[in-house]
Amino acid sequence: MTTPTDDTSSTMMAAAENLLTSRVEAIRPVAAALAERNRIRALLHEAEKVYGAAYSAAQGAGWSTDELKQMGAEEPARRPQGRPRSSRTRRSTSKPSVPPQGGNDGSGFDGGAEEQSNTSTSAS
C-alpha cells in the first residue's frame, strides 16, 4: 500500500524530471551552435594565416600597403611568422652597472673625488 508521502515524492520527482528534460532540450541547440562557431573560428584562423602570407608575398613583390589598401586588401590581423623585419640591433636602455670614474650616480659614492680633494687640501 502506498502512503500519501510516497505519492507526493513520486509526483515531485516526475515534475523535476519533466523540468530537467525541457531544460536539457533547450541546451541542444546551444551546444550545436557552439560546435559550429568553434568550427568556423578554426576555418577563419586558417584563412587568416593564408591571407597574411599572401599579403606579405604581395608586399615582397613590390606592392605597398597603400596600393593594396586602394585595391580593397586590408592589412591582415596576423602576419605570418618568420624573420623580424628589422635587422638593426637594439640599443640597451639599461644604465651601466659601474658608474664612470668620478661621476656621481646618486649612490653617495663619487669615485673618491671628495676624499682626494680633502687630502690634497690638507697636505698644503
Rank of each mutant, 00 (worst) to 15 (best):
M1I: 09
T2I: 10
P4F: 08
P4H: 04
T5M: 07
T8S: 02
S9L: 12
T11G: 07
M13E: 09
A14N: 10
A14Y: 07
A14D: 04
A15Q: 07
A15E: 02
A15N: 07
E17K: 15
E17Q: 07
T21E: 12
R23G: 05
V24Y: 11
E25W: 15
A26S: 08
A26H: 14
P29K: 01
L34R: 04
A35D: 01
R37T: 03
R39N: 15
R39G: 12
I40H: 01
A42T: 08
A42K: 10
L43V: 13
L44A: 06
H45P: 00
A47I: 13
A47F: 05
K49H: 02
K49V: 08
Y51E: 02
Q59S: 00
G60F: 10
G60P: 01
A61P: 01
G62A: 01
W63M: 13
W63E: 04
W63R: 13
W63D: 07
S64N: 01
T65D: 15
E67S: 13
Q70T: 05
Q70D: 14
G72P: 00
A73N: 11
A73W: 00
E75K: 08
R78H: 13
R78M: 13
P80Y: 00
G82R: 00
R83D: 13
R83G: 09
S86A: 14
R88W: 06
T89W: 05
R90I: 10
R91H: 14
S92R: 12
S92L: 14
P99K: 06
Q101D: 09
G103V: 05
N104T: 07
N104S: 05
N104L: 05
S107M: 03
S107L: 06
S107D: 15
G111C: 09
G112Y: 05
A113D: 10
E115M: 09
T119Q: 11
S120M: 06
S120R: 03
T121G: 11
S122I: 11
S122N: 12
A123F: 01
S124V: 12
S124F: 11
